[in-house]
Design a protein around this nucleic acid. Sequence first.
DNA 1: GTTAGCACTCATCTTAGTGGAGTGCTAATA
DNA 2: TATTAGCACTCCACTAAGATGAGTGCTAAC
Lengths: 342, 342
Amino acid sequence: MQLDERKVKILQAIIRNYLETGEPVGSRTISKYTDLNLSSATIRNEMSDLEDMGYIFQPHTSSGRIPSDKGYRFYVDSLMEEKVAELNTMRSELELKADKIDVLLQHVAKLLAVNTNYATMVSKPKAKHPKLKFLQLSEMDMQKLLVVVVLDSNEVKNRIVDMDIAVEKEMLLKLNVVMNTFLQGLDLTEINMSVVQQMKQQAGEYSTLVTNILDAVADAVSEEEDMIYTSGATNILKYPELNDNEKASKLLYTFEEKKQLTQLITDSMDDENNRGIQVYIGDETPLDSMKDCSVVTATYEVEEGVYGKIGIVGPKRMDYEKVVNTLQSLMVDLDNIFKEKS
Amino acid sequence: MQLDERKVKILQAIIRNYLETGEPVGSRTISKYTDLNLSSATIRNEMSDLEDMGYIFQPHTSSGRIPSDKGYRFYVDSLMEEKVAELNTMRSELELKADKIDVLLQHVAKLLAVNTNYATMVSKPKAKHPKLKFLQLSEMDMQKLLVVVVLDSNEVKNRIVDMDIAVEKEMLLKLNVVMNTFLQGLDLTEINMSVVQQMKQQAGEYSTLVTNILDAVADAVSEEEDMIYTSGATNILKYPELNDNEKASKLLYTFEEKKQLTQLITDSMDDENNRGIQVYIGDETPLDSMKDCSVVTATYEVEEGVYGKIGIVGPKRMDYEKVVNTLQSLMVDLDNIFKEKS
DNA sequence: GTTAGCACTCATCTTAGTGGAGTGCTAATA
DNA sequence: TATTAGCACTCCACTAAGATGAGTGCTAAC
């Protein structure tokens, strides 16, 4: 059997209607509210076909139909085709005041959640191998040394290092210069034993301090915690089909913990093909707690090799059209914001 | 009528039982499971008295009794009396590596949530008027200046300031010295126009830069965002009495937003009498979304004038005894951790 | 190929009935 | 006088039995 044009129209009508109401949709509804001018009986025949083909199914005998995962998939795919062209032009080249990026991304998550009424997540763009821009060593007190690490992305991190022996001001200045000379522009993989040895040599009796500082730097650079901003998790409770209190609970927990979300995002990010907008329906999502949901993610590229993801989690009867459009226009907005700022 | 010893015992038995089961408790239950050896009829009479006095009530005619807010209040107060003495010795003097404090507090929130099965929150200790320990100005690139602000509490913040005119390395060093000389040890209220003027004078043509830097410093010092760490918010769904999906939703939202939590905590913190452990029952809580809950908070003092709060939110039938004990022992643990670290 | 019509299914809502836990009251007892 | 046993009563929670209605599948006619 083949999906002719009429079947496609009916399928789309069924899905759209279901997205609105959340109720199984019957043949009479479709026959009344479409421009097809077909009787309910005809629709019934077509629906029966669509069911055989696996696009829709009945939750119980003699109820209306709801879209299967395959049905959603078809809907999304046909929707996507129209959008893909635009999407390719979407790369936002964001390089902005990095100290505000946390606030911004949190804001984006919130905005998206408020606009869509779904749960959202935004991951912080992270370079695979961030390079060091410079270090700044300052004495906090007799025993403590403040190490400020500035990355190529203008991200600033700081660590406090214990000093076993008192270090004179001049020595500190010298250390500062030495370490910067050696480390500037390097990423973690490039800081090898040879480099370390040379630095230690120059530091003389303070070579242990150098080791401690390097540890702190490595720690700061590789820190990954809290890379994800979420919002609207409570929106999940608005959808009866997710609200069986077992599922909702698990889902909310996933959002609270965030750890699994990181996995979801990094998983989908490693795949080079997964740029642009991606839709996971039901079982397609990598996370167990989301098997009854749909997840839409979008990748954005801040600069060469630095990607972040924006994701939306909602019920399978998600308003895919709106979500995709919102994601897109959000990207454009982001683009503008970043351009203004930089 | 008076609360004689027997009434107290019966009231406590009722509350304990209700805490365990979550069901209204009847006279027969009490007569069987206490060492009072009274018949259910006697208990009934006493219960009737307790109801008249407002400590318990029937959710509907001829059902068992459940504690009223007043009943909980009595229970908690009599519980507290035993504990207050210990509590006064509890102040933990935490001064630790400030860069790890975020992680630590998040961990505390989680630990507490896992142990109690309630929702928890921990506020970051914040001095009313934090003093500046020192500043560190570094050049990021031609147009950007990195300002690192270190507070008395060893907290480190950074801001990026735009430079309109290029600044020479030497000038930057000088500015660094000048600003530190003037600002070290001051809090925001002490940086007055006189101080600002003197600094500007020394800075000569770079006086606008000084203004910008000061703005950044003020911004960094007064920043309050994300002062609260939460965990276990999803535990709320475990309690049927909160799970009417309207209430649960609001509660979870409160935890997601955190803004209101800040209010709850700062509200209770301003009151000088509210040190130590505090219990809000039902309507006593300042937040609307928690009118059906109980909230237990504990204040901890890091150093003179620097307080933080730990809070637990759960159903009114909270296991107050356990919560209070847990909060206490957690304090002790914290104490030890901080002592090791500092 | 399309449609009208009819018998059938099944979730949902309503209603009535039942059981049980619990109370209040009264009269008897220690 | 305080305590207790006993009984009538209340009301929630649960179940079973219709009633309703939306929706289907199938057949025969157009």
